[in-house]
Simulated scan of single mutants.
Amino acid sequence: MAGLDAFGTQLQRGDGGTPTESFTAIANATNITPPALERETLDVTSHGSPDQWREYIGGLKDGGEVSIDINYDPRLHDVLVADFDDPNPRNYKVVWPGTLGSWSFAAILKGFEPEAPHDDKLAASLTFQVSGKPTLTPGS
C-alpha cells in the first residue's frame, strides 16, 4: 500500500472534566498538522573523540507545535478564545481516521489568526504549543 487517506482526521478538544474527560472535534477543520516532535542534541566531542568525528547524545525533547486551519464560524470557534486566555495547558487529541489510533497531548493555544478576505470564505489558523510528552496510541 502506497499511503493512507487523511480524510476524517480530527483535532479534538478536552472539556477538562473529571474523573472522565470528554473530547469534541474542533469543527470545520481543513488542515491539521500534528505535534512536530523534536529533540536537542548535545555535542560531547572531546580531544579524544575517535578519528576527529563529532559525537552527540540526546538532550531535551520537545512536543513542538500543532496547527489547524478551519473554515471559521465565530458561533462555533470563539469558545477557543477562552483557551487563548487560559495560561494553563488543556488536553487535546489528534484522532486519525478509522482505527489508525490517536496522539494525545496537553497544549496552550498560542495563536488564533482569523481572516475575512473580500473574495473568499472566513477562515482561521490556530497554533498550539505542546506541553510535556504526547501519548501515542497505536491503532489496530
Rank of each mutant, 00 (worst) to 15 (best):
E113V: 06
Q52F: 15
S140G: 12
T41K: 15
S46Y: 12
G101S: 02
I32A: 05
F128Y: 03
G17V: 05
A29L: 03
D85A: 14
V81E: 09
N28C: 14
E40Q: 12
D43P: 11
S125D: 00
T135V: 14
I108V: 14
T45V: 13
P138I: 14
E113L: 04
L122E: 05
T24W: 06
D43W: 15
A116T: 06
T24N: 09
G101T: 01
D86G: 01
Q10M: 13
T127I: 03
N88K: 09
A2Q: 07
D119A: 15
R75K: 15
H47D: 11
P117R: 04
D86A: 10
F128P: 00
D120W: 03
L80R: 04
S125F: 00
L136P: 00
G132W: 05
T20D: 12
P74V: 14
G111I: 01
G98W: 07
G16F: 09
P114T: 09
N31A: 12
R39D: 06
P134H: 15
A25I: 06
I32P: 00
A25W: 07
W96I: 01
K110C: 08
M1S: 14
G139I: 15
G8C: 06
G111D: 11
D78I: 13
I32Y: 07
A29I: 05
D15W: 01
G58H: 08
L37N: 12
D119Y: 09
W103Q: 08
L60D: 07
A29W: 00
D51T: 15
P74N: 14
T135H: 04
P35C: 14
V66Y: 01
A107C: 03
K121G: 06
P138R: 08
V44P: 01
P87D: 14
P117H: 07
D85C: 15
A107S: 10
L126K: 00
R54V: 09
P89H: 04
D86P: 00
L109F: 03
T99K: 04
Y56H: 08
D73H: 11
P97L: 10
L42D: 01
R54T: 12
G63Y: 10
E21S: 08
E40G: 10
L126M: 05
S104E: 12
T18P: 00
F128I: 01
D73K: 14
P74K: 13
G64L: 10
L122M: 13
Q52H: 15
G59M: 07
D69L: 06
H47V: 14
T41D: 04
D86M: 02
V79R: 03
I108Y: 00
D73S: 15
D51S: 13
T30R: 11
T137G: 10
G3V: 04
T30G: 12
P89K: 01
F23E: 06
P134N: 14
F84V: 09
Y72D: 07
V79Q: 04
H47Q: 13
